[in-house]
Amino acid sequence: MSSPNILHLNQSGPTEFVFRVFTTSPRIQALLFCFFLLLYVMILCGNTTIICIVCIHSSLHTPMYFFLSNLSFLEICYTTTVVPLMLSNIFGAQKPIPLAGCSAQMFIFLTLGGADCFLLAIMAYDRYVAICHPLHYTLIMTQKRCTQLVVGAMCLALLLDLQLTVLICTLPFCGHILEINHFLCDAPPVLRLACGDIKIHQAILFMVGTLVLTVPFLLISISYIFIANTILRIQSAEGRQRAFSTCSSHLSVVLLQYGCSSLVYMRPRSSTSEDEDRHLALVYTFVIPLLNPLIYTLRNKDVKDALKKSMSCKRASEIQ
């Protein structure tokens, strides 16, 4: 009996992939399409608003908001890599995607996700310098250094994920058209479809996951240990509250991002984890990019003030 993940095994030709549909019910498919499209539009609007607010208001031209605007840009690109193709396949047409296209999506998705994790670690370092070394903050976090940190995060993520993607796409696959139990070409579900020995590839995936997730998370944790120690020594309750408020939004995003990603890429592989991986992928593809602008807007006084100011200026211009 053939594997349920292999279609048209006897056909010859280049390897192509199709994504497993969420449901075969046309009514539920239509509801899912509208729901995911709405989430995607909200993600684009929310993160674009953050970028525009940071660019427009000079009061937000600081390293913290420079990193925040770059995080929002990464979230837009990250989601756009996945959602349009996902929406086009949601009605069960199962349009094949060639191995080259699947590899390209995997590479861009993993690179942007890795850069996202590195950028969150950089943001923790920025908060550490701002709270623990406030007198040297402007000397350390210069515009040039901030730009170098963002470019470095992108380059490091690119180098790590390029090697992994090349190794995976050169694997032998059994069959012409293979069904991926997922809605995107991610490393774990594609590895499961390979015919050859994948122990080395799984080890490299774990190593890359360690470098992208574990190491930055440890650096974030160390930064916040120093930050917490400094905050507790602040005499006034107002000062402690102000210092904590600049970190709480970032901590919320870190726990969401690293928690979901670790469950997918760092846990042992098992035959029963495929559906769980797909559900977790929905969280870091839709929920986290949607919550990021909400968290930073609702819990950040500077961003809220800038939004109110922009809305007031808009109303004033409409009245005139």
Rank of each mutant, 00 (worst) to 15 (best):
M1D: 15
S3Q: 13
G13K: 14
V18A: 13
V18F: 12
F22K: 05
T23R: 08
T24F: 11
R27M: 06
R27K: 14
I28D: 15
Q29H: 09
L37C: 12
Y40L: 07
V41L: 07
N47R: 04
T48W: 10
V54K: 13
S59W: 01
T62S: 15
F67A: 04
S69H: 07
S69W: 01
Y78F: 11
Y78S: 07
T80W: 05
T81G: 12
V82K: 10
P84F: 03
S88N: 09
I90K: 12
A93D: 04
A93M: 12
Q94E: 06
Q94V: 00
P98V: 08
S103H: 11
F107A: 15
A115E: 12
L120C: 01
A121I: 00
A121N: 01
R127M: 10
V129P: 06
C132M: 03
P134R: 09
P134Q: 06
Y137P: 08
L139S: 15
L139V: 13
I140S: 05
R145S: 09
G152H: 04
A157M: 02
L160Y: 10
L160H: 06
L162G: 07
Q163C: 14
L164M: 11
T165R: 05
L167S: 12
L167V: 10
C169H: 09
P172S: 14
C174K: 11
H176V: 02
L178N: 11
E179H: 12
H182M: 15
H182V: 14
L184M: 11
P189F: 11
L193N: 08
G196V: 03
D197Y: 04
I198Q: 05
A203S: 09
F206M: 07
T210D: 14
V212G: 02
V215T: 09
P216L: 03
L218D: 08
L218P: 04
L219C: 10
I222T: 06
F226E: 08
T230I: 07
I234D: 04
A237S: 05
R242N: 03
R242V: 13
R242F: 00
F244M: 13
S252L: 02
V253L: 04
L256V: 00
L256R: 00
S261A: 12
Y265C: 04
Y265P: 04
Y265R: 02
Y265F: 05
P268L: 01
R269D: 04
T272N: 09
S273M: 14
D275I: 13
E276D: 15
D277Y: 00
D277E: 06
A281G: 15
V287H: 07
I288H: 00
I288N: 03
P289D: 12
L290Y: 14
N292W: 01
L294T: 03
I295N: 07
T297W: 04
T297D: 02
T297E: 08
N300M: 10
D305P: 01
L307W: 04
K308N: 13
S312F: 02
A316H: 01
Q320F: 09
